[in-house]
């Protein structure tokens, strides 16, 4: 049976949702174990076990929290030599991809990045990767040993399998030479009431919002629906809202119950990050916008009038 190592990313001492999604998929492909590094690693083993990890290798050295990529690369390279997994899975997230890239270069093997699925085939692994700006999907066979695949967040729904992981201390001595890119401070900009990635309703604004001064209309609607506000790359690049709100290929991937795209044309760069939402509602003045061709409900009209009216109607319904 194939052995699969999942890199469980910790953020603020907690396991990321993406890590659990990876475990959920990996347990169908072979024997799964995980590695968790940094503060909270030991406690994380419980939830990792519930999602299918049979063993969790842990090390709580603070260097994993405080230095970019290099200490984790040292730990993973050591673990690889011990365990020789057939497949190593990472989330395609900023922190994980840096470790994956360094590890692949150190092991001298390539990797498959930005995958939307991974499956076993003919004793090896095959990944599906958005291709051609997202219009197509390529099936890519992993040629290297180990196969290293980075999977986009929200590609699967995480579910528990009810297991318990054996916790093993991973012996790593982080060399001073790996303590270089030092995270000296963390600044929180987005006062996210509901996390964009976890929200059951996401309301995203694009150029059709007219300017940053109109984004509070979306905040109001999000408040009424208990949702979060996202944005297209165009308005992030224009400096209207912070990057943390960007949904799309180079931003966040979301799959909420309802996605409301307001004044967003629906460029592939954006839709690749939201097209697995259960229900998509688009509000746009252009009936020919690409977003209208993928929305369950497309409303052609003036977003600046419709959004406040919708907020009022939602509030009225909740109170009624």
């Amino acid at each position: 049976m194939a052995s699969i190592l999942v890199y469980a990313e910790l953020s603020g001492g907690k396991v990321t949702g993406t890590s659990l999604e990876l475990l959920t998929r990996a347990r169908d492909l072979g024997d799964v174990y995980a590695v968790a590094l940094g503060s909270g690693a030991k406690a994380a083993a419980t939830i990792l076990g519930k999602h299918g990890a049979k063993v969790v290798h842990v090390n709580e050295d603070a260097a994993f929290d405080d230095y970019i990529a290099e200490p984790a690369t040292d730990a993973l390279a050591g673990l690889y030599e011990q365990q020789k997994p057939d497949l190593i899975l990472f989330g395609f997230t900023p922190d994980s991809r840096e470790v994956a890239g360094r590890l692949a270069a150190r092991l001298g093997v390539g990797l498959i990045s930005n995958a939307s699925d991974v499956a076993a085939k003919d004793g090896g692994f095959i990944a599906r990767v958005p291709y051609f700006g997202g219009a197509k999907v390529a099936s890519m066979k992993a040629n290297a040993t180990p196969a290293i695949v980075l999977v986009r967040p929200k590609s699967f729904e995480a579910s528990e399998s009810g297991g318990t992981a054996e916790v093993k201390d991973l012996a790593v001595t982080v060399q001073d030479g790996s303590k270089r890119a030092h995270i000296v401070d963390r600044v929180v900009e987005a006062s996210e009431k509901v996390k964009l990635e976890d929200a059951r309703v996401v309301i995203s604004g694009g150029r059709g919002m007219g300017g940053p001064q109109n984004f509070p209309l979306l905040e109001d609607l999000a408040g009424a629906l208990g949702g979060a506000v996202g944005a297209s790359r165009a308005v992030v690049d224009a400096g209207w809202v912070p990057y943390s709100m960007q949904v799309g290929q180079t931003g966040k991937s979301v799959r909420p119950g309802v996605y409301i795209a307001v004044g967003i044309s629906g460029a592939m760069q954006h839709t690749v990050g939201m097209k697995t939402s259960k229900v998509i509602i688009a509000i746009n003045k252009d009936a020919e916008a690409p977003i209208m061709k993928m929305a369950d409900l497309g409303v052609v009209g003036d977003a600046l009038k419709i959004v406040p009216a919708l907020t009022a109607a939602v509030k009225a319904k909740k109170n009624g």
């Binding site: 692949a104 001298g108 093997v109 390539g110 990797l111 498959i112 095959i126 990944a127 958005p130 291709y131 051609f132 997202g134 219009a135 197509k136 999907v137 390529a138 099936s139 890519m140 066979k141 992993a142 040629n143 290297a144 097209k275 998509i280 009936a287 209208m292 061709k293 993928m294 929305a295 369950d296 409900l297 497309g298 409303v299 052609v300 009209g301 003036d302 009038k305 419709i306």
Partner: peptide, 24 residues
């Protein structure tokens, strides 16, 4: 070196069907 991956096939991405479009 040998490429890390080989493309076995390319298909159109699953596209969502257009739903209802209404004028406000």
């Amino acid at each position: 070196g040998e490429p890390a991956e080989s493309i076995e096939g390319v298909t159109d991405a699953e596209s969502r069907k257009a739903g209802e479009v209404i004028e406000d």
